[in-house]
């Protein structure tokens, strides 16, 4: 029963996407966008954190270059997820493109947890992807529509983006032995904010910090090879 397994496996994703998707929809509404624009973004882009940043880009009048490069840097992790399932997706025929498009942090984690010996594993992977995308699209459209009819003032609801990023950062921090990367990101971020000003600083900050991390990784590697 691939569907039963897929549904059970997708339940944690359901609660996570329902809530974060609603928050996304509410924030889209607060920024002045209709439920169908929220739905369209969730349908085409389909990434959690970046969709939140995209709201501020759309409403703040960011350049195409900023949108493109931030999408590139923020979503580059998806490339590494696809890499893990290269052989699996290739064997999925017509469903391959759908599997590639719907790869997210959450479905990646669930796909990794599936029993490799299960003959229905690929069907389960497909159904998890399908269900998760429905949860996300549904929640974001409902959130945006809800924002329109809720009778109270939702000023400050945009903080859910800040809170989401903080929770992700805390989780990443706790998995690390050293914290060079997040500290570098924070310091470079604040310096660029002071130097370039609001909105425009995100692009130089992301580029500087990527270069710095790359350099640090190379030096670290050389050092380790020198010690060996």
């Amino acid at each position: 029963m691939a569907f039963k397994t897929a549904f059970q496996k997708s339940l944690p994703i359901f609660f996570s996407y329902l809530f974060v998707g609603l928050a996304y929809g509410l924030m889209m509404n607060e920024a002045g966008y209709a439920w169908y624009t929220a739905l369209f973004t969730s349908f085409t882009v389909y990434t959690g954190a970046f969709q939140f940043v995209l709201i501020t880009f759309l409403s703040g009048g960011a350049s195409y270059l900023t949108v493109a490069l931030t999408a590139l840097l923020m979503n580059s992790r998806q490339t590494f997820y696809s890499l893990t399932f290269l052989e699996d997706f290739k064997a999925m025929g017509r469903r391959k493109l759908y599997m590639i498009h719907t790869m997210s942090d959450e479905t990646y984690a669930v796909n990794c947890s599936l029993d490799r010996e299960d003959p229905a594993r690929k069907d389960t992977m497909f159904l998890v992807a399908l269900l998760s995308r429905i949860y996300w699209m549904g929640a974001s459209a409902i959130g945006a529509a809800l924002g329109q009819v809720l009778p109270f003032d939702l000023t400050g609801i945009d903080f859910c983006m800040t809170a989401l990023f903080i929770t992700i950062l805390v989780d990443q921090w706790e998995k690390q032995k050293e914290h060079f990367e997040p500290i570098a990101g924070g310091v470079v971020g604040v310096l660029c904010l002071l130097l370039f000003g609001k909105q425009t600083f995100i692009l130089p900050a992301l580029l500087f910090v990527s270069g710095l991390i790359l350099l640090y990784g190379q030096l670290h590697q050389t050092e380790r090879e020198g010690n060996a």
Partner: peptide
């Protein structure tokens, strides 16, 4: 190898920049 390493180290640096970005109105 360098690309694989970047894949592991970049996300938390980017997330830290994003926390600063989402709190930018503090200035």
């Amino acid at each position: 190898a360098w690309l694989e390493r970047l894949g592991q180290t970049l996300p938390s640096a980017i997330m830290a920049v994003l926390v600063v970005y989402s709190l930018q109105d503090t200035v």
